[in-house]
C-alpha cells in the first residue's frame, strides 16, 4: 500500500463508511460490491455506528512492519451498536484489562507513518468509551 492507496481509502477509514444491502439490509465493512447473504448488487454507502462492544480479541505480539514501533496491540472483533461485526484495533487500553463485552467507541488515531519524512496515515481505532 502506498500513500496514494491510503488516500483512496481515507473516508472509509476516517468515518467507518461501509455499505448496506438495499434488498436484505446486511451491512458490510469495508465495502463490498455484492451482498454475500442475498446476492444483491444494490448496495448503498452507510456510515456505521461509532460505538460497540468487544466480542473477542487477541493481542498481536509478532509486530508487522508499519506497526512495529510500539509495544503489542490488541485487535478485536467488535459488534457495533447496529449489530454489524467488524475488526478494529484497540487503543488507550491496558492490554491486561480488555474483556469480552467491553464497551468501545471509535476515535481517530495515527495508524502509521511513511518514515520520518513521509506521510502520516490516520484512521479509526477503538478505545474504551469516555462516557455512556
Amino acid at each position: 500500500m502506498t500513500e496514494i492507496s491510503d488516500w483512496r481509502y481515507r473516508i472509509e477509514r476516517y468515518r467507518l463508511i461501509g455499505v448496506r444491502c438495499r434488498r436484505c439490509g446486511s451491512v458490510y465493512y469495508p465495502k463490498r460490491s455484492k451482498c454475500i447473504k442475498c446476492g444483491s448488487s444494490d448496495l448503498e454507502e452507510v456510515e456505521l455506528p461509532k460505538r460497540g462492544r468487544v466480542v473477542e480479541y487477541t493481542i498481536v505480539r509478532l509486530l508487522p512492519d508499519r506497526y512495529n514501533r510500539f509495544h503489542p496491540y490488541a485487535v478485536a472483533l467488535i459488534e457495533l451498536d447496529d449489530g454489524t461485526r467488524i475488526y478494529g484495533q484497540l487503543t488507550d487500553v491496558d492490554l491486561d484489562k480488555i474483556h469480552e463485552g467491553m464497551e468501545v467507541e471509535a476515535t481517530l488515531r495515527k495508524l502509521y507513518e511513511y518514515g520520518e519524512s513521509g506521510q502520516i496515515v490516520y484512521g479509526i481505532k477503538f478505545r474504551p468509551v469516555l462516557s455512556r
Binding site: E12, T58, Y87, Y112
Partner: peptide, 12 residues
C-alpha cells in the same frame, strides 16, 4: 485494507 488499517496479521 485491513492489514494496514488495523494491523491485521495472519495470526489474528
Amino acid at each position: 485494507f485491513l492489514v494496514d488499517y488495523i494491523g491485521l496479521t495472519n495470526l489474528v
